[in-house]
Design a protein around this nucleic acid. Structure first.
Lengths: 120, 120
DNA sequence: ATTTGATTACGAAATGATTCGTAGATTAAA
DNA sequence: TTTAATCTACGAATCATTTCGTAATCAAAT
């Protein structure tokens, strides 16, 4: 079950902050144009879908991500390589690196990562 | 205007095969579960959206991708880095390289690409 | 000219995602 | 205990995407 864009935004908060109430998620997102009950509803739907679980022992329910960040990222990555890059990982990587948003620090990280790959 | 998943599938065909009729796209996709008129309708909608243009000089219309493969790929990539990788290009790249059984040749290409980046 | 086969146009249904108003429940404060 | 604040539940509206049936059009074959 692939999360939607809105669901991804919520998952990002849960992955970063750990178990959270609807209000905490709502405030983390601080989208000017959506109301509290919208986020609530989305999170309830995510519960139905099995994307999150929750602790209802107190009045304010706490939500926890049920799917892992890594697995989910991979799911998106694989899909993207397929549908957008026709299966070519290296094309995706090179286009990502060519992106002007990539900082020198990030490039250094990647070079170190590649170096490490070679040594094993 | 970001293409939907279905629109991406159609664009892939147009990018690969060049200008094509609806039937040609329909056959290239050979999805067992969708009919001819569905693809037709999708392509007509893509025309409305400006994703494709068409040549109507003969009975069988020919469709041409109006947006470039590179720009579109970048658009998806940027969005993905934002929503899935919290803005970290290097995390995306490392996950792509780490997970895939990337060949030595591909790794060398990427290293050369990085080297080239540094020199400019 | 008529039929046959392929095509486009179009409307509308089905599905899925997003949005929020309102009602009811629960807790904390007065 | 009553009030106020906060929360959940739920239905329904809205919007976008995907689906296809049907009618109209066109071209080629009979």
């Amino acid at each position: 079950m692939k999360p939607t864009d809105s669901e991804m935004e919520i998952l990002q908060v849960l992955w970063t902050k750990g178990q959270s109430s609807v209000r905490e998620v709502f405030e983390s997102l601080d989208k000017k144009d959506v109301g509290y009950t919208t986020i609530l509803k989305l999170m309830q739907i995510m519960l139905d879908k099995g994307l999150v679980e929750r602790d209802t022992s107190s009045k304010t329910h706490l939500y926890i991500a049920k799917i892992s960040k890594e697995d989910t990222q991979h799911q998106f990555l694989d899909k993207m390589i397929d549908t957008v890059y026709n299966g070519s990982t290296s094309r995706l990587v090179m286009q990502a690196l060519g992106n002007e948003r990539t900082s020198q620090k990030e490039i250094d990280e990647i070079k170190a990562f590649l170096q490490n790959l070679e040594n094993n």
